[in-house]
Design a protein around this nucleic acid. Structure first.
Lengths: 360, 360
DNA sequence: ATGAATTTGAGGTGCGTACCTCATTTCGTG
DNA sequence: CACGAAATGAGGTACGCACCTCAAATTCAT
């Protein structure tokens, strides 16, 4: 049976045929007060009786007034300069994020929001902390950072927030640093998603799955692995997940480890916790394994994309860098304004990408 | 091996430490012309020598000027009123879209864009055409519509465009109506995606798949089925896809048809071309088939969401209504301004949703 | 060189809001 | 009732830009 939603013709009230929206002047007239008073109420300035405030708010409600934020910001001549810190290097995903951020910044320029992208030496949280310490609250309206959580960094974030600078964690959460927000997906849920796909793609036969990671130092990788294991243990008991093989970014290590693992027994699947799609593709080709194992990875980059296309990888769990970037700037902006953030819009999805739904 | 992207500290040029961006006045000074001339160049007004235009553009480039669109629109005091036509009824997806559009409109208010949501009797393209004929180009900056393609409607769209009103097709394409844009996903690709998942989820054993649809009159359903078949025939020859069972929105018809189809032989999967998740859930429960067949459907609604959660459905191919809504308004806005649209941003993804990556 | 056409400059107004100052009114309290 | 304090009004400037008018300068064709 089909729901018939109640008909709704217009989202605005009654028979409103004005061409332009009501302005502060209209409110003043409607409320029977002066412009100055309306302004005081709108901007929560002191010196207005409660009764008057109510009158103004009533008028606002009656007229359906919505503040023209563009004009408001113009009048404030306020600019929002955000600083985003990304690790230097760190795989192709970081580069993709940098591009997405640049694009988002370009678009956000329309809302008077600017962005400075700052690269810090990957893994060197001391350097990053030093950079954060130099952030000037008068110039920077907000800070976003993609970084592993270390005590030094945690303190740096705390110090920054103490100076009234909003801080959001980007892609990789910093749960104990007291950030204002985390922009990214739940890594454990991402791992669970990978797990379900692996289990279903493998089918019912008992099989073994190898897990590869560059490093298990990053919180993301650990969480993903946790989610992956959870699901397979619970829902696909026939699947045996092997211990994580750390490659430390070395193609050769990956190939050797892979050869070792695969040679022995019936490996049915490979789970790629982090980057390294290109190396894996090469290794699979070298061993003639294309199409014989189910491969599932994370993050959509040029490499994983071509690996999907060529059939070396069967599914990629991704987060949309464009959304990450836009959400980052929007959230920082909201925090800077002490405005509430729209949870719905900032909700990031866990994307499942296979060859057939690969975005163009 | 890991790519080390070239370090990039700031996306803006050189050692720019100005707190505020350059304005039209800065350009005038830099180019050695008057404000009026800069204005003429910026707004492509006539009466400027080519040499002067070049000089101004050079100054713009040198200063890295970007027009403050918020201020520009404020000055123009232009409002963009968009009309969006949605069928009355038409399943829960339509209701979800209506909500998403309302939300998008609320947010778009910041860019002086308003929206009127208009419901027309579902399937009655004559009524819709009549509504379209009454659209006043002076009041409405653009029109979006979700509707099946009929000759009447096609002509109505043509007439509208002839009156210089941009028209975009929403969710369901109108390929022969000459719309300015289509906001939605490629239905055939969506069907292919469903096909791959069905094939992989079923595993290697020969099995049969039932296909259910409310109606095959909608272009979307036909295209999805095409994509679905393509993939299964090519990549999963062991799977036998049965003819489409049309339910015409009747729960009882669905249940009967389902019982008939399932009773006979080894049905391994069900592909739900359109809406009807709730009815299917009920039918599956009634027949005690929960967990015994792979079910794949389309569009994420309250019903399909709970069906995913309860395990009645295993995957849903969806398009994000929020993105659809925002993209619709953005594209209409761009068309109204005769501005180019950002293909990258308007690219809509085919979402694969399973229980594990269900958005909160 | 002259007149006409074209190009440019100068200056103004308004969009909707923030924020400021100063005068005036209203209120609460003794 | 008078007093200071609190509340309100009136009016201005600014933000960055669009768009208008009119005069002045420059160019072009003859």
């Amino acid at each position: 049976m089909i729901d018939v939603p109640q008909s709704r013709v217009d989202s605005r009230a009654e028979g409103d045929h004005r061409l332009s929206r009501p302005t502060v002047n209209d409110i003043a007239r409607e409320a029977g007060v002066s412009l100055a008073t309306v302004d005081r109420v709108l901007n929560a300035r002191p010196g207005v009786r409660g009764k008057t405030i109510t009158a103004v708010n009533d008028a606002i409600a009656r007229l359906g007034y919505v503040r023209d934020m563009a004009a408001a910001n113009l009048a404030r001549s306020r600019r929002y300069r955000m600083a985003v810190f990304l690790p230097d290097g760190g795989g192709q995903f970081v580069q993709t994020m940098a591009d997405a951020l640049d694009e988002a910044a370009q678009q956000a320029a329309a809302t008077r929001t600017e962005m400075s992208l700052i690269r810090y030496p990957a893994g060197d949280t001391h350097s990053l902390a030093a950079l954060l310490a130099r952030v000037n609250p008068d110039e920077v309206a907000g800070v976003a950072l993609m970084a592993p959580e270390t005590p030094v960094l945690r303190d740096a974030v705390r110090a920054l927030r103490a100076r009234a600078v909003p801080v959001v964690a980007l892609a990789s959460d910093l749960p104990n640093a007291g950030c204002d927000h985390f922009v990214g997906i739940d890594s454990r849920a991402a791992g669970r998603t990978a797990g379900v796909l692996m289990g279903r793609f493998l089918g019912a036969r008992p099989q073994r799955v190898a897990v590869l990671a560059e490093t298990m130092l990053l919180r993301d990788a650990i969480e993903r692995r946790r989610g992956f294991d959870e699901v397979l243990q619970a829902d696909f008991p026939a699947v045996d997940v092997l211990p994580t093989l750390e490659t430390h970014g070395a193609t050769e290590a990956l190939r050797r480890g892979l050869a070792e693992v695969l040679s022995g027994t019936d490996i049915g699947g490979i789970y790629l916790l982090g980057s390294g799609h290109r190396a894996l593709t090469a290794a699979l080709d070298g061993m003639g394994l294309l199409g014989r194992v189910v491969v599932i990875g994370h993050e959509l980059t040029e490499h994983s994309r071509s690996a999907l296309q060529s059939g070396h990888i069967h599914a990629v769990i991704a987060q949309n860098p464009g959304h990450l970037a836009r959400s980052t700037l929007r959230v920082l902006r909201a925090k800077a304004d002490r405005a509430p953030i729209d949870a719905g819009q900032e909700q990031l999805r866990i994307d499942i990408v296979i060859r057939e739904n690969l975005p163009a």
